[in-house]
Each structure stands twice: as C-alpha cells, then as structure tokens.
Simulated assay, not measured.
Amino acid sequence: MVKRKTSNFSPEQQLVSLDARLLLALQRLSDMLKSMQWEQARALGITPLQLQILLFVGHHTTSITKVAYIATELQLSRPTISDATATLIAKGLLEMEEDRRDRRSYSLLITDTGRDLLKQAVNYTTDLDLLLQKKPEGEKSQLYQSLYTIIAGLSENEKGGMQRTCFSCEFYDGNKKRQHTCGLLKKELPSSELQIDCMYHSSLS
C-alpha cells in the first residue's frame, strides 16, 4: 500500500516538520493581516478591496495606477477592479486622469478626501509595526532576507501577481545570493535592502 503523504497543515506533520510549521506560520500571518484589513476597511466605510486600491493608488505614480495594472497587481479581473474603482470615484476618493497619448486610457489619482482617508487606512498595521520595532535589527534583517527569497521564488514561477523586485529588474546585477548591485543607483546592496516594490523598477521584458 502506498503511504499517503501527510499534509503540511496536519497537526501530526507540524510536530515533525519545520517546513510545515513555517508554512502554517506564513498562512496564519496572512490570515491575521487580512482580518485586520477587513476591520479597518469596515471602520472606514469601504470594502477591503477598495482599501487595497486606495493604498496602491495613494503610494504609486500614475504610470502604473491604471485598472489593468492594478488588476494584475491584485490578481483580480479587470471588471472587478473597474467596479471597485467606480465606487471609489463616486465616493470622491479617487478621480480619473486621461492619458494624453492614448485617450482610451486613464490613470487613477487619489483626491484630497481620499488622502485624508488614507492616513487612517494604514492604522491596521499598527500592532505589527510595534512588534517589529521591538525586534533586533539583525533578526529583522534575516527575516526579511528569507521572506524576500520566498517572494522572489514564487514570482519566478508566475505566482503572486505583479512584483517590482530587484531580481526582476533590468538594473539588477548580481548572483541572487550574496552579491547584489543596482545599476541605476550605482551601488552595491546588502540582501536586507533588496526591494519588493521599487519605485525605480524597470521590467526585464
């Protein structure tokens, strides 16, 4: 009889496998963040998706605050993002800016009202921020490096939507292990400074 592989989510596997415990820890952390985001969105009178869109538009340039790009970023369909942004526009939190080069295209801009709401929107991470502040720098650096390699690895397998990481940027030069150089900034980067959402990112394709 072929022995059935024990699931990484089973209590039995948690007892004997560090990989299983890490996977469950990442899942639990994701669930907690989603729950906190839900609570914050509800307090602000918007949906969690609308909150995600506000956070994205409020912190990125108009070159990427387009419906198609946001849909890829959040791994959702264009109609879903279009409906959510239409509601945000109706609420006066976002507005459209027409693309001068292509009048069929437009970018999303956050309004003053939306920016006021955005100041409150980031509060859902306060508890996590405080916990991280208490951690030693060396411990945080190691944790970030581990998380970065996991995210970058999934991105290479086309998981996780749009990623503006160093490893997927034309300016990156290095061995993706311990040697990292940014050609644009003309500097060597320690692993703890590798970017996940770089404002200077330029796609390899």
Rank of each mutant, 00 (worst) to 15 (best):
T6F: 05
Y144F: 15
E158D: 14
S192T: 06
L24F: 11
S17Q: 04
M36G: 02
Y69S: 06
D31V: 04
L22G: 06
V2L: 11
D197P: 00
S168K: 07
K66Q: 12
L128C: 02
G92I: 03
T113W: 01
F171A: 08
N157F: 08
K119N: 04
Y172N: 03
C166K: 07
A43M: 07
Y124E: 05
R78Y: 08
K135C: 10
Y172E: 04
F167I: 11
L76K: 14
Q179W: 10
A43R: 13
Q75V: 12
R100Y: 09
I196L: 15
K5Q: 08
R42D: 13
I46Y: 07
M96K: 15
K135N: 01
K3E: 12
A152F: 06
Y106M: 02
K34S: 14
Q75L: 06
F9V: 01
Y148A: 06
G58V: 02
D19L: 11
L93R: 02
L88F: 08
Y106N: 02
L147I: 14
G92C: 05
T87N: 12
L49T: 05
R101S: 11
D173R: 15
L154V: 03
R178T: 15
T113V: 01
Q52A: 11
L26M: 12
L51Q: 13
N123F: 08
T62R: 10
V16L: 07
R42F: 09
L23M: 11
L55C: 02
C169D: 03
Q37C: 09
Q27W: 10
Q37W: 01
K66L: 02
S146E: 07
Q133C: 03
L22N: 08
F9Q: 09
F56R: 03
S35I: 01
M199L: 07
H59Q: 12
E156V: 00
A43P: 00
E156G: 09
V122P: 00
T181N: 06
Y69V: 14
K135V: 14
S191W: 01
Q52G: 01
T125G: 00
L132C: 09
D129S: 09
L22F: 10
G161A: 10
E193P: 00
P136Y: 08
L29K: 09
C166G: 08
K177A: 13
R28T: 09
L118S: 03
L33Y: 07
D173L: 09
T65L: 05
G174N: 04
M36V: 01
L74M: 06
L29C: 04
W38L: 15
C169V: 07
T47M: 05
S141I: 02
N8M: 11
T149K: 13
L93V: 00
D19F: 07
P136V: 04
L24R: 13
A152L: 03
L44M: 15
E12G: 00
S63C: 01
L51C: 05
I89A: 06
I89C: 10
